[in-house]
Simulated scan of single mutants.
Amino acid sequence: MSDPDLGDLQAFAAVARARSFRGAAALGGVSASSLSEALRRLEARVGVRLLNRTTRSVTPTEAGERLLARLGPALDAVSSALDVVESYKHTASGTLRLNVPTAVSRIVLPPILAAFLLRHPGIRVEVTVEDTFIDVLAAGFDAGIRYEERVERDMVAVPIGPRIQRFATAASPAYVARRGRPGHPRDLLQHECIRHRFASGAMPSWEFERGAETLRVAVSGPLVATAVDLEVEAALQGVGVISLFEGFLSDAFADGRLVPLLEDWWPSFSGPFLYYPGNRHMPPALRAFLDHLKTETRHIAS
């Protein structure tokens, strides 16, 4: 004998408790005929009559009484379990797992994430910082943050953070006093430059733009690193010229520890995007984060 359908068992319990097909139908918002059909299926599967039916009354048989006694608590437990799941649709809770690059974790995410967590104390966020591009879903993440050229085309992409960012070139006042200011990007070929190596091993040339003119300069220098903090500290100590996201250098610009160089040539690029699969059953924590980003976007726009 195959296992009875849960819906058929629920229909039996409803009718047995109400002692009426019409009464159970009214309480459950279904038709009496659908309940009658469910009872026929259930009795056919178990091979035992469960309800005595007359034109005036519906009463459980002995077998029906015993089934109802055992079934009632089980159905109540199922209902409670489904209520827990249902609550996730309406309550901002759970865990949000994000995969983000270093620049986003340092420049873009901190103020957004802090405000989000204070607003939603029932949500926990797990952030993994990774500069290589990965399949976020296969790796167990709810969403990723990357710049436009790295976002998978079959994903939904939502702007996050500033919509325009720049690469800045800078050096310490001591370095400028010792070596002078470059007047043109090509002058950097005669300067000591601090280079960044990506996790892939790539060390791209420095790119500059002014108006319609774009050029790349294959700089060299005494330090190559994969750690941004180390590169910035070396620049602060006067080791050489550095070129990084402006956000990494803004504090040092503000207090004079670094001097902006070649500002007319700083290239700009579009800000990052949060991307995720476009499905209907979105985790509540991700939905709450997307709603928060809409608020942030309106704030930036204003």
Rank of each mutant, 00 (worst) to 15 (best):
S93R: 12
F133W: 08
F116W: 08
N279I: 09
L223P: 09
A288V: 00
D187P: 00
E149I: 00
G144M: 11
V241Y: 05
R45A: 15
L117Y: 04
S57P: 06
R146C: 14
V85Q: 09
F253C: 04
L117V: 11
M203Y: 07
P60K: 12
E296G: 09
L249M: 06
S243I: 01
A63I: 00
E65R: 13
A168F: 04
Q237H: 13
P182G: 08
A13C: 09
M155H: 09
N52G: 11
M155E: 14
Y88S: 09
I145W: 02
I194D: 04
L249F: 05
A288W: 00
P260V: 00
A81C: 10
D83W: 02
P272F: 07
T214N: 10
L230F: 03
A13H: 04
V58H: 12
P162T: 02
L50C: 10
L9G: 06
R166C: 10
T54Q: 12
P277C: 07
I112R: 09
P204D: 06
E37H: 10
I112T: 06
L98A: 14
H196W: 10
L118M: 02
G28E: 08
G256M: 05
F141A: 02
S250Y: 12
P111C: 08
D76M: 10
A38G: 05
A16R: 12
S87H: 08
G256V: 06
G256D: 11
V176M: 08
G94M: 04
M155A: 15
L35R: 05
R298C: 13
S243K: 12
A81P: 00
H191C: 06
V217F: 10
L223E: 04
F245N: 15
R153Y: 10
